[in-house]
Simulated assay, not measured.
Amino acid sequence: MTAALKRRLYRGGRPGRLMRVWNRVDTVLYRLPLLRRSAAAVLTVRGRRSGRLVQVPVAVAEVDGVAHLVSMLGPGAGWVRNVEAAGGRARLHWRGRERDVLLASVPVEDRPPVLRRYLAVAPGARPHVGLGPDASLARLRKVADRLPVYRVLDAASAPPMGEDA
C-alpha cells in the first residue's frame, strides 16, 4: 500500500469506512495464538461519549523490557481521547494474555527511542509519521511532540473496567 493511499484511508486523522472495517478484522486476527510473538495487540477502552467498550488494533513497542503504545494519528485519535477520558485505564490483549493496564503518558523528551522501535514493529504507521525505523534521533525528536506515547503499566490494583470487555 502506498504512503499516499494509506494517508487517504485515514483522512483527517480518522479511519475512513474501509479502515474501520479493516480495523475490526484486525482486532479479531490480533487475538489469534499465531501472533503471540508479535507486536500486534488489541486495546480496549471505554468510549468517552458512548460509555461502550471500544476495541482498537495497536502495535506494542517494547523498549528496555517496557511496553509502549504510540498513536500514529496523533492526539486527536479516538483511542487516545478515550484513554485520556478514562484516566489512562484500559485493557490490553497482547501475546495471548488480556490484562487491565494503566497507560501513562511518556514525556516528549523520552519518546524518540520508543518511536524508533514503534516504526520498526508497525510498518503501517510509517506513512503517517513520515519516517522509518532508521531515522536519526534528531529527526524523531522533531515529530515526538505530535505523537502521543504511553508506557503500559500493570493496573492489577486498579478496579476492573467491566465484565463486558
Rank of each mutant, 00 (worst) to 15 (best):
D164V: 10
G13N: 02
Y118G: 09
L32K: 03
G87E: 07
W22I: 10
M72A: 15
G13Q: 01
R17D: 01
R95E: 11
L153H: 13
L119K: 04
P113T: 03
A135V: 09
G132H: 07
G16V: 05
A120N: 00
V63E: 13
S157E: 15
L147Y: 05
V149L: 12
S50C: 09
A104G: 00
G12K: 04
D164Y: 02
N82L: 11
R95W: 02
A122L: 04
R95S: 08
V114I: 15
R99L: 01
V25Y: 07
G47I: 07
R146N: 08
V114H: 04
G96E: 12
R81N: 04
D134K: 09
L18I: 14
R17V: 14
L32N: 05
S105D: 13
A156F: 04
V56S: 14
V25A: 15
L102N: 00
Q55C: 03
K142V: 05
D164E: 15
Y150D: 05
P15N: 10
V149I: 05
R31Q: 14
P57N: 09
L153R: 15
V106H: 03
P133F: 05
A155V: 04
L18A: 15
A122G: 04
L35Q: 01
G78V: 03
L119R: 09
Q55I: 00
R20H: 02
G76A: 14
T27M: 00
P113V: 07
H93Y: 13
V143P: 12
V58D: 06
L69M: 03
L5K: 12
G87K: 10
A155Q: 02
V63M: 11
R116T: 02
A122P: 07
R8M: 13
V56C: 07
W94R: 13
W22L: 14
R97I: 08
V149W: 04
A158V: 08
R89C: 10
R52Q: 14
S50D: 05
E84H: 10
L29H: 04
A77V: 08
A156Q: 04
G47C: 11
